[in-house]
């Protein structure tokens, strides 16, 4: 029995040593990434100081052109959105940002999924490489699993499945948007499929997920309490009108109760019937993103100028 425990101990010591050594290399790769996903997340959590911050999932990342927002509002802008993410990621980014500074304007791109499905903490696991350096996000990552805090002692585990996107920017740059795009991920393709003039019917109403709603409420209230001007936006979809989903109704309620402007584009016919503006039914291409951002900032601008202190703070 002693022989068995000794051998297991030897293997564990060797594994721990490798883990530490590999962690040093991986941390270096993360910190020196020229662009791409890890550069972007690190910048969002640890460096950004922009006046305007956009937070959302892939629709936030692809649909909001930071340059147009900057030119139009006269404020610096950073798009901290990330594809495949939801409320847990948004909350983590919020904690990372608010621990350092208070943005003047926050644009929250909210999808029905963000409030209707259970919060996917596992997806927010892409933040694990930042767990050690960014303590404010730890409580959110700890929700991923019961013993996540213990697993996070391993650097290899923290970088689990991240290697492809961690290494890629060292060979090919710009695939997730150039660093100069400031978080925007332009999509050049145009959608080929068309709906032939027939719009999909309004989706059936589904119940909101209480946990996701609670995360969203915290997200809004924390920004509001810190004095940020918050805007809620629902992006357009191609080929279907979504105007009365449970999520949108909840956004309307939040907007009314908290005096937060809400812009719903998911029933805007200037987008939903034009395939040339989309890359797929859920995401706008470059032309669509530019058109959408211009329209949106046109609506946001009066609110920001009405509150002069925003641009002076």
């Amino acid at each position: 029995m002693r022989k068995l425990y000794t051998k297991i101990l030897i293997i564990l010591v060797l594994l721990a040593a490798f883990d530490v050594a590999a962690g040093l290399v991986l941390d270096w790769l993360r910190d020196h990434s020229p662009d791409g996903r890890y550069y972007k997340t690190k910048y969002s959590l640890e460096n950004c100081q922009e006046d305007v911050v956009v937070i959302g999932s892939s629709r936030g990342e692809i649909n909001y052109v930071t340059q147009i927002i900057e030119d139009s509002l006269g404020m610096s802008c950073w798009n901290a959105s990330r594809g495949g993410q939801g409320t847990p990621y948004f909350r983590a980014i919020q904690e990372g940002i608010l621990a350092r500074y208070t943005p003047k304007v926050v644009i929250l791109n909210i999808d029905d999924n963000d409030l209707e499905t259970r919060p996917n903490y596992e997806h927010a696991g892409v933040l694990r490489p930042f767990y050690q350096n960014c303590p404010p996000i730890r409580p959110i990552i700890n929700n991923t699993s019961t013993f996540e805090w213990a697993l996070m002692k391993s650097r290899l585990y923290a970088y689990n499945s991240s290697f492809y996107y961690l290494i890629r920017p060292y060979f090919v740059q710009g695939l997730d948007g150039k660093a100069s795009d400031k978080g925007w991920k332009p999509r050049l393709e145009k959608m080929t499929a068309e709906i032939g003039g027939q719009l999909e019917p309004e989706p059936e109403k589904v119940d909101l997920n209480k946990e996701s709603v609670a995360l969203f409420d915290t997200l809004v209230q924390k920004f509001k309490t810190r004095g940020c001007k918050v805007f809620l936006v629902v992006s357009p979809n191609y080929g279907r009108t979504v105007s009365a989903s449970s999520a949108i109704e909840y956004l309307r309620k939040t907007s009314a109760e908290n005096n937060i402007p809400l812009f719903v584009y998911s029933n805007d016919t200037s987008f939903i019937t034009k395939p040339e503006l989309f890359v797929d039914p859920d995401h706008l291409n470059v032309e669509g993103a530019q058109t959408f951002t211009r329209q949106l900032v046109g609506q946001i601008k009066p609110f920001t100028f009405a509150n002069q202190h925003l641009s002076k703070e």
Binding site: I11, L15, F18, S145, L156, Y157, N160, S161, F163
Partner: peptide, 15 residues
């Protein structure tokens, strides 16, 4: 060691 490292680095741990 290789298998353990590979499991930790590339395994899917979504329960």
């Amino acid at each position: 060691l290789f298998m353990l490292i590979y499991i930790i680095s590339f395994g899917v741990f979504d329960g």
